[in-house]
Simulated assay, not measured.
Amino acid sequence: MKGSSSLHAKQSIWKKSLNARTALLYLFPSILLFSVFVFYPMFRTIYLSFFLTDQHGSAALFVGLENYAYLLESQAFRNSIKATVLFVLYTVPAGVILALFLALIANEKLKGIGFFRTIYSSSMGISVAASSVVWLFLFHPSVGMFNRLLTLVHLPEVQWLLDPDWALLSVSISTIWLNTGFSFLILLGGLQNIDGYLYESAKIDGAGYWYQLRRITIPMLSPTLFFIITISLINAFQSFGQIDILTKGGPSQATNLIVYSIYREAFVNYQFGTASAQAVFLFLCILIVTILQFKFGERKVHYQ
């Protein structure tokens, strides 16, 4: 009996080992890609954040935490943090609410609604560069459409991208439009997965549209909303293309978000050490926001 039990245990261990090796073999391509494009750059960035570097990005002098201390004392970096926080507050809530509104409209069973679904999701197929160029013309102070409309209603023209009070809001508007297509498609898919029997039962009980929206639609859509809010937060912290094309961080550093500040510090000023410290700071901010989102936001998510 002991010999049979020992043999069975050895076979079980050998089978588990074989399964582990098979799993690693299947995972190897993904592990290799993540190692080259994610893990190595991440650890390299953390390493460089403790050094002063030369123009080629090589570590030259170990300074410890001095790069981080410099950032905390830098007024420009504090302005970048403020601009980034405001940008996130401008874009994420407005973008999610707009996408939800469009998804609710497009989910109605009306003739020709497919055309509007295509229009609402069209921004998803446009690159950041192309859309930013379009918005650059719309915001133009003399020939832009927005100032033309203000002139028609006898309102003063606005220097959309040249006025520090308007520049961040203008870039936020273009970002909301750019991200609406993706959020709209995901939310529409979530709405179409809600069982129609729930609405039929509610109608039989005399429930109106707003009651159904509050008691059925939003709770059943909460996993999708949770996903969209999380992704939108991460994307907002990482926005770069529209800043580079529309304002280049100006005017007066009003739109100098942390990502653009990292770019300028590394590839304009060739200070890769302080740029790496900013990148580590941004990573920690996104990590903390995501953890808080999962800790507090997921409590209100209904998965059934």
Rank of each mutant, 00 (worst) to 15 (best):
A59E: 00
F34K: 01
F101H: 04
V133S: 04
T84S: 10
P29I: 04
G3Y: 11
L169M: 13
A20C: 10
F226R: 08
L198T: 05
H302K: 13
L155V: 05
P219Y: 05
Q159C: 00
W166N: 13
Y209G: 09
L233Y: 06
I229Q: 07
F281I: 08
L136M: 07
V128P: 13
L48Q: 01
F50K: 04
Y26C: 12
L162K: 13
S239F: 13
L65M: 14
R44E: 10
G206N: 00
Q242H: 09
F272C: 04
S122K: 06
I126E: 08
Y303Q: 08
N179R: 10
Q253M: 12
A76L: 15
L246S: 00
P141C: 08
T224N: 11
L284V: 15
P41Y: 04
T22D: 14
F43A: 05
F184V: 02
R148N: 12
K109W: 06
S17W: 14
Q278P: 03
Y211N: 13
F51N: 01
E108M: 11
F296Q: 05
P141I: 07
F283G: 09
F101D: 03
Q55M: 02
P164N: 07
A167L: 04
F137H: 11
E200K: 10
P93S: 06
Y211V: 14
S49I: 02
P41V: 04
L138S: 01
K2C: 07
T118K: 09
S222A: 09
M1W: 14
Y303D: 01
N269C: 03
Y303A: 01
T274R: 13
L221A: 08
L7F: 10
T22S: 14
K111P: 06
G144W: 08
S261K: 10
G144L: 00
Y303W: 13
F116E: 02
L72F: 15
F34L: 15
I204G: 00
L287H: 08
F237N: 03
A20V: 11
A277T: 07
F51T: 01
A83N: 08
F37S: 08
F39D: 01
F182G: 00
F115S: 09
H302T: 12
I218L: 14
M1V: 11
K111F: 14
M42Y: 14
S183L: 09
I258D: 07
E200I: 03
N79I: 10
V268P: 00
L138G: 02
N269S: 12
R21F: 15
S6M: 13
L27F: 10
P251E: 07
P251V: 07
I286V: 15
R78F: 12
V63G: 05
F115W: 13
P251H: 01
Y26V: 12
P141T: 03
I176V: 13
N179V: 08
P41G: 06
L287R: 00
V259A: 11
Q192T: 03
